[in-house]
Design a binder for these strands. Structure first.
Lengths: 210, 210
DNA sequence: GTCTATAGAGGGATAGAC
DNA sequence: GTCTATCCCTCTATAGAC
């Protein structure tokens, strides 16, 4: 990867973070990257294609970076704690914010949708793996579709990022409530055999008549 | 409220929905509203101020509209069902999508932040009221901060809206998982006195050493 | 209140020199 | 690969006629 191409990729992430999808133009990106504006089109064809590439590059390297920490998570509470840490760390570096901007742009711009979908899918896969590992043989996993839950958690994370941008105290409160939630599930995980059997039968009943 | 002002408010919502925050210009709004572009500035001063007004107007009337249905919700499962119905109905009319676009824009544009915060706060208040009513005297309410949970739910809803825009099948899966989740909590709500006492003591222990 | 016209900035994209 | 220069478009905002 040539130096200029990487500068443009990094400059795009930077611009999306600081100016949002509405302010991300070829000129703004080139300024952030410290290169000539015409190089956006020479190397990537169009602004949309550059955003696509930058989104994939950024999300890929960031997920790789967090992979080890995900793999060490041993409980739902720890997963929520990692989520909160990730939220804090990434607010500064801005990868979740970038994904939120691309997703917002992708609602109307078909060219951005694949990148947004792909970036989010990387996080979903990571979270799905952890959840599957944590919930194996638990009554919770019997009741809940884990891939679906991973998608809900990932989407919620993006929403919390946007909420944090307009009300950081409210977002803190939301994160705190979710951590209390994790405790609740862990308690359910750890029920004695009698309660567990009762829970299972209740869940079966609820699922058979949805 | 003059006819033109209302046309501009409606046109702004329409434009945010169909073109996103990046494509919402005075000209685009005026075209959608069927009025002259200069009237944006005559009536509202600037595009940002018009978006602010439109966001408040749209969210206010939509929350009013759903208020009765929220007040009739009798269980968490019904709340999730209403959430899913709301998501489906609003995908067409676009108020949640509009809020997502304003929140995305508000990350960088200080002028949009109050409107995004306000619109979301209306939904949060509604959900908080329902949750407080549903969880009164339940072991769940003892463990979880209800205002925080309402914020998490509302933010998650915005994230799911964005996710739906790039992967509607994945979003469906996420909603389904959350509905299964509600069943799980209802089961916990409905434990016998012995299990309930055990749950409480576990929660107390978990909270005392967080 | 509503219109036309326009200033002045910024946008995507390309041609062509180096 | 990189640069300047440029075309043509859209943008916000305002001035001024009606």
């Amino acid at each position: 990867m040539s130096d200029t191409k990487q500068k443009l990729l990094d400059g795009t992430v930077e611009t999306l973070r600081t100016k949002g999808i509405a302010g991300t133009s070829a000129r703004a990106i080139a300024t952030a990257a410290g290169v000539n504006q015409a190089l956006v089109f020479y190397h990537f064809g169009s602004v949309d294609q550059l955003i696509d590439a930058a989104c994939r590059d950024g999300a890929g390297s960031r997920v790789d970076e967090y992979h080890e920490r995900f793999s060490k998570v041993a409980s739902l509470r720890e997963l929520l704690e990692l989520g909160r840490a990730l939220h804090t760390e990434e607010s500064a570096r801005g990868n979740v914010a970038v994904m939120a901007q691309v997703l917002a742009g992708a609602q109307q711009d078909e060219a951005l949708a694949p990148a947004g979908r792909h970036a989010l899918s990387l996080w979903i896969t990571e979270i799905e793996t952890v959840l599957a590992r944590l919930l194996v043989r638990s009554p919770v996993a019997e009741a809940i579709d884990v891939p679906g839950l991973a998608r809900a958690v990932s989407a919620a994370f993006v929403g919390l990022e946007l909420y944090d941008g307009v009300d950081d105290r409210g977002a803190d409160q939301a994160f705190a409530a979710l951590e209390q939630f994790a405790v609740l599930i862990e308690v359910a995980e750890d029920l004695g055999p009698v309660a567990r059997r009762a829970l299972r039968s209740r869940l079966r009943k609820a699922r058979s008549k949805p």
